[in-house]
Write a protein that binds this DNA or RNA. Structure first.
Lengths: 200, 200
DNA sequence: GACCGATGATCGGACGACCGAGTATCCTGG
DNA sequence: CCAGGATACTCGGTCGTCCGATCATCGGTC
């Protein structure tokens, strides 16, 4: 993280080293692709655009969160816990919701635990599973972080209309591309809708 | 990287451990956001969708490239060099085009060099700069990799129409969000800033 | 009740990207 | 000609993610 420019006002421009920008590297890449008759130029353009856009948003978000001692990954985990009824979830559940690898969850929770924002508890009945429980400090910080995230619009420079259109396209992408269900079980239980209820 | 599911056929489903999917964690997050009246729900949804989508595409791409011993970062660098007239570019140029931090370029070129795909040369006139030069092996591998990338459509599950729409939106995002022109203006203005503490 | 395939979490290792610093080298204004 | 700032690259350290493998536990089956 550390390139691009912070898209949003809020802060005074922090003097930092960054990859100097070129006019449009992506358009240039696409031009090359088409000129040379390489395969799937549109997909190529879409993927590279996707990666750059994510990079930009991610950088903006990480930058906003850093003063609070959080990363986006940890912030997400914290919010997830704060949404749960009891303030705690099995690590496996966290990974499932956040779509990250089990080892990443272990990692993230390690950090949050060191920071005193989360605690590890035993699961009452299943001794394999560990529960991550948000602490009062964790809740407090999550709230402050959410305020900050709102100020920078989550690193999303588009206005709500465009952002909504983006969500539509990306939802389609995720659906087509593998964000697929192992959810048969889950789904039937929860009463059919894609927008499932609170899963605990 | 190992989450999601590989959206494309090509390989036989490698039995691997992956974050088990849940129906739509993102829709759920948004529901929570709106229910609780938190700030900027649309931006939140767009950013999280962007990150997941990138993650999916990235995983698909990395997975396709791995058998060739390449990562997407290295593949991009290789293609960039292969597009240049002489097959070599200053490292700074590479970073600029690929929008990555100088240290990342050093890193990437180190790896490519170890693999014998790229060579480091002296710049004829400027002794500060190092040229990365693609080797014949590098060209050959880049070509094979491009074929593979075509087969998996660069990890892009959308069809060309949707992909094109996505490119349009993301281009707007990048334009609005900081993929901005070169920085001389900004630079000069910034000099007065006190120790850049970007506290909000 | 014992077996054996799933499941949950962790460890060690690898990558990519970043930041902060530090060393050369260029270049320009006085 | 030289000082001082800009530029190019590199090193050391952090973070997040993934993979492969390991260990304990669960749970269904025979």
């Amino acid at each position: 993280m550390g390139g691009g420019r912070r898209p949003f006002a809020a802060q005074p421009p922090p003097r930092r080293r960054e990859p100097t920008r070129q006019l449009d590297a992506l358009a240039e890449a696409r031009r090359q692709w088409e000129t040379r008759g390489l395969a799937e130029p549109v997909a190529m353009a879409a993927t590279t655009a996707l990666m750059r856009a994510q990079q930009l948003a991610s950088q903006a978000v990480e930058r906003a969160l850093r003063p609070l001692g959080l990363s986006f990954a940890r912030y997400e985990a914290l919010m997830l816990l704060s949404f749960s009824r009891t303030g705690s979830l099995p690590l496996s559940k966290v990974g499932e919701r956040l779509l990250v690898h089990p080892t990443s969850v272990t990692n993230t929770v390690d950090k949050l635990e060191q920071q005193g924002l989360v605690r590890r508890d035993r699961h009452p009945s299943d001794r394999r599973t560990t529960l991550a429980t948000i602490t009062p400090d964790g809740r407090a910080l999550a709230q402050r972080a959410t305020a900050v995230m709102g100020e920078v619009r989550f690193g999303m420079p588009l206005d709500d209309d465009d952002a909504e259109a983006l969500v539509t396209l990306l939802t389609r992408l995720r659906a087509a591309g593998g964000d697929a269900p192992d959810a048969h079980v889950l789904r039937s239980v929860v009463s059919g809708g894609p927008a499932a209820q609170e899963v605990q």
